[in-house]
Simulated assay, not measured.
Amino acid sequence: MTALATTHAGTTPDTPPLRVAVVAALPQTAPPLVEALQALGHQVPVVIGFRRPPDWPGHVLGEHDLPPGVDLAIPSAPERVGELLRAYCPDAAVSYGYPRRLPAAAVTAPRLGTVNCHPSDLPAYRGPNPVGWAVRNGEREIGVTWHRMDAELDTGAVLARTRIPLDPSVWSFTGVNTLVLKAAAAMLPHVLGRLAREEAGEPQTAEAGGWAGFFGEDYATVDWSAPAAHIHTQVRAWNIAGHHPRCEGPVAVIDGTRWRLRRTTLDRPPTGTGRRIACGTGDLWVLAADPLG
């Protein structure tokens, strides 16, 4: 998918090879970043991963996910990230999707600083669930922003940004992540060039961008009296948002049994596929769901 309305100028052949650490927790995020950096001629000495929480439902990054010559370091706590980065003496660090805020000692450990990729047009949708909220709000495209990291969350100066379509056929974090990383990788030459030139970047606008936190109980239960289109959006937003450690959704009751809805459609599927539900306005077909105890 082609990135739209980019604010960067493409490649920067004058950028010297850099030692770039990657800070990323998932096998869907770290390997593509490593590959993109190496393809640009930069060295990736280490990926800073994340210790698997007891309630984590999916996979976390493992050493088998990384190419030869790239170390994987798992800090015992976020406060250890800076120490690990300093041990590898990187020129810069790039972060995407790390599930904890990095302390100042980590952000400033690389010689040229640390940059983060955030899937929104900052300052809009700051926080851990930007794409989920974009879907919930009916957005048809999302931003992708590379920004310097500072003491706060998603507030640092912008080095590059673009916008990409929010494909309605994409229903998972992994699907959105693939599109975001493609756009982010295309901006990396410009971002690293600006870092090498020690450019500060453009401060984010002072306007309130809105906080994109995890969905809560107020959005977790499906109300079949609502319009079918509203419920369809709710199901997609929850599934793109992914794992939530404290709240499960969207939960619906069908024939007296509680289900977590995974996939729905507003269009009649082939005969024998899905379960039709009459909603407050229109019909919705449930294509996939998990029973809840």
Rank of each mutant, 00 (worst) to 15 (best):
D121W: 13
D121V: 10
L122F: 05
P123F: 11
P123L: 14
A124G: 05
A124S: 12
A124K: 10
R126D: 02
G127E: 13
G127T: 01
G127Q: 13
G127K: 15
P128S: 11
P128W: 15
P128F: 14
P128V: 05
N129T: 05
N129E: 12
N129C: 08
N129H: 10
P130C: 14
P130K: 15
P130T: 05
V131F: 07
V131I: 15
V131Q: 03
W133G: 00
W133F: 11
W133K: 00
V135R: 02
V135G: 05
V135E: 06
R136C: 15
R136A: 14
R136V: 13
R136Q: 11
N137L: 15
N137V: 09
N137Q: 07
G138R: 00
G138A: 08
G138S: 06
G138C: 11
E139T: 04
E139R: 02
R140F: 12
R140G: 09
R140E: 13
E141P: 15
E141T: 03
I142V: 10
I142P: 01
I142M: 09
G143C: 04
T145S: 02
T145M: 08
T145N: 01
W146T: 04
W146Y: 12
W146L: 13
W146D: 07
W146E: 10
H147E: 11
R148D: 06
R148T: 08
R148C: 11
R148Y: 07
R148K: 10
M149L: 08
M149G: 14
M149T: 10
M149H: 13
D150Y: 01
A151T: 06
A151S: 12
E152N: 14
E152D: 12
E152G: 13
E152Y: 10
L153R: 13
D154V: 08
T155S: 02
T155W: 00
T155V: 04
T155M: 01
G156F: 00
G156R: 04
A157V: 13
A157H: 10
A157I: 14
V158H: 04
V158Q: 05
V158Y: 06
L159T: 02
L159K: 00
L159Y: 05
L159W: 07
L159C: 12
L159E: 06
A160W: 04
R161G: 02
R161F: 09
T162Q: 02
T162K: 00
T162D: 06
R163E: 11
R163I: 06
I164N: 08
I164T: 10
I164S: 06
P165K: 04
L166M: 11
L166W: 14
L166V: 11
